[in-house]
Design a protein around this nucleic acid. Structure first.
Lengths: 95, 95
DNA sequence: GATACATAGGTAGCGTGCCTACGCATAGCG
DNA sequence: CGCTATGCGTAGGCACGCTACCTATGTATC
């Protein structure tokens, strides 16, 4: 989901949390302790690139989806479709 | 998913694994090390009841969905629908 | 008779990752 | 002067899926 948010353009951690909140219709309200470590992992994996900047006296780390991240996102998306289909078929009624 | 399989009638661990395999169209092939501990957890939670029996010289533990398990299954099903909807809306293209 | 596979149960330990609970810092408002 | 929003981060606990094992019987194969 983090990669999907970054697909629409570079964003910093706090902005990503807000974007997830809006995109999910208010359902997601992820704490920073969940998102920031996750962004570190994504950066370490080479799927996003982080750059420091200062906006309004506050330090920001803006992340950009890398080429590898785009590939990863596509893979994860199709994986999710397969997965949710399987779960739906087992649970029944959803598919 | 285990609860959903047991919704259609009592079954033993090995049979549950096979049912999951069939219901998922061959996608799921869960190892015993995943399923047996999970069944223990479900039993400890009171959602399924296990009974020992001997069939063809082999010991079997047959599990039955309890009333609480039926409630839990209904809750988990609607939770899954909400959850997959949120993920789909964030990932985009699925919904 | 030996070997392999399907059936049927189980445990131990590793690794991952989410969440809670913190800490630090600045800008703006009442 | 404190509260809230903005913005970053770490530490530790907990849950759980998976791999890798072990045991045992019935049946088919070589």
């Amino acid at each position: 989901m983090l990669l999907a948010v970054l697909e629409q353009g570079p964003l910093h951690g706090y902005g990503i949390i807000e974007a997830l909140h809006q995109r999910s219709g208010g359902a997601l309200d992820l704490p920073t302790g969940t998102v920031y470590p996750a962004l570190r992992r994504l950066e370490r994996a080479g799927w996003i690139d982080g750059v420091w900047s200062v906006v309004g006296g506050r330090k920001r780390r803006t992340y950009t989806l890398s080429r590898a991240g785009r590939r990863e996102l596509a893979a994860r998306r199709s994986e999710w479709i397969r997965f949710s289909g399987v779960v739906g078929s087992v649970l029944g009624g959803t598919t």
